[in-house]
């Protein structure tokens, strides 16, 4: 559905996209994950023909994308990062306005607008002006304006920024429902939990480059970090910590504020070894947690920095 090849975009001396490649398949939720400034929005704006670019090829629905490719544009929906609605129009009027750019027939448009209002959970607010809506409702209106015309492909650029947890869950559930109805979704975020929860395939971006692409499982398999162990332990001596670090399945281990944290190697499971060592050393320990590696670990191991740095 989307094919991007060797895309280069420069802002003066800054390389915003460095030979960027992307393939999005029909019917998937594709996540672009990266810290702020990694090039996610620039990539989307280039794909949508909003930005000029220095090099590369962009194909949408099998045709080269350009500002005058109205046929492709008709099948696309966009939810920009900033809320893009008229402050002087009500919820209904806003959705109707943006839907009318795709669906000229008023009779055909009306049920679509109603459906979008119901989808975004804005039925009680249809006559409200945007300034009367909370941040979460405003984001939902922003989404409703982008999806009312039932596009085949939708770009959601950080749609949950500054949204309360309840609205965020509603938005994510809505996106899943959209995808279930056949819409292909390109979703950008710097919240790894969202991307993990939502996307069927993920591209991790940094400094304008795609550093890894695949399913969550494929991405975590790329790194050496395996299971992550956390143990509540009082007064862990340095010598015991060193012994833990030397265990064969432990990649790295640290102790701070009464918590021992150990990253395991690949598919190793050193929980029993660690707990045995603590018991033998007379260290009292409390709760023990274990969690699989996250996309943040993938980003950390590949780039040497946290995703939210």
């Amino acid at each position: 559905m989307i094919h991007v090849e060797n895309l280069v975009k420069r802002y003066g001396k800054l390389v915003a996209l460095d030979h960027f490649n992307l393939d999005v398949k029909d019917g998937e939720i594709f996540g672009l994950l990266g810290p702020n400034g990694s090039g996610k929005t620039t990539a989307i704006n280039c794909i949508l023909s909003l930005l000029t670019y220095d090099k590369g090829e962009i194909t949408l629905f099998g045709k080269p994308m350009s500002p005058t490719n109205y046929e492709s544009k008709r099948k696309i929906g966009v939810v920009p990062q900033n809320v893009a609605v008229f402050n002087e129009l009500t919820v209904y009027e806003n959705i109707d306005y943006f839907c009318s750019l795709y669906v000229p027939d008023k009779a055909k448009r009306k049920p679509l607008v109603e459906e979008a209002i119901a989808f975004a959970g804005l039925s009680d607010y249809r006559k409200f002006l945007p300034k009367k809506l909370s941040g979460g409702l405003l984001r939902r209106l922003n989404i409703a304006c982008g999806i009312a015309h039932k596009p085949d492909l939708i770009f959601l650029d950080e749609p949950t920024v500054a949204v309360d947890p309840q609205s965020r869950n509603n938005i994510l559930e809505g996106i899943k429902a959209l995808n279930a109805s056949g819409t292909t979704v390109v979703y950008t975020s710097h919240y790894m939990e969202e991307v993990e929860q939502l996307c069927s395939r993920i591209m991790i971006m940094d400094k304008g480059r795609a550093i890894a692409t695949g399913t969550k499982e494929e991405l975590t398999a790329l790194i050496h970090t395996g299971e992550k162990l956390t143990v509540e332990a009082d007064g862990l001596p340095l010598s015991v910590l060193e012994q833990i670090r030397n265990l064969p399945d432990v990649l790295r281990a640290d102790y701070a504020e009464g918590h021992l944290k150990a990253d395991c190697k690949g598919y190793g499971h050193p929980v029993i070894d660690v707990l045995d060592l603590l018991r033998q050393s007379g260290v009292h320990f409390g709760q023990v947690y274990s969690e699989p590696p996250t996309l943040n670990d993938v980003f950390l191991e590949i780039t040497g920095k946290q995703l939210r740095d």
Partner: peptide
């Protein structure tokens, strides 16, 4: 402002729409 994608978010929505 409402028309230009580099001036407003509404401009982005309108520029990517299929309307000439």
């Amino acid at each position: 402002s409402y028309l230009q994608a580099n001036l407003s978010s509404m401009g982005i929505r309108r520029t990517i729409s299929p309307v000439k």
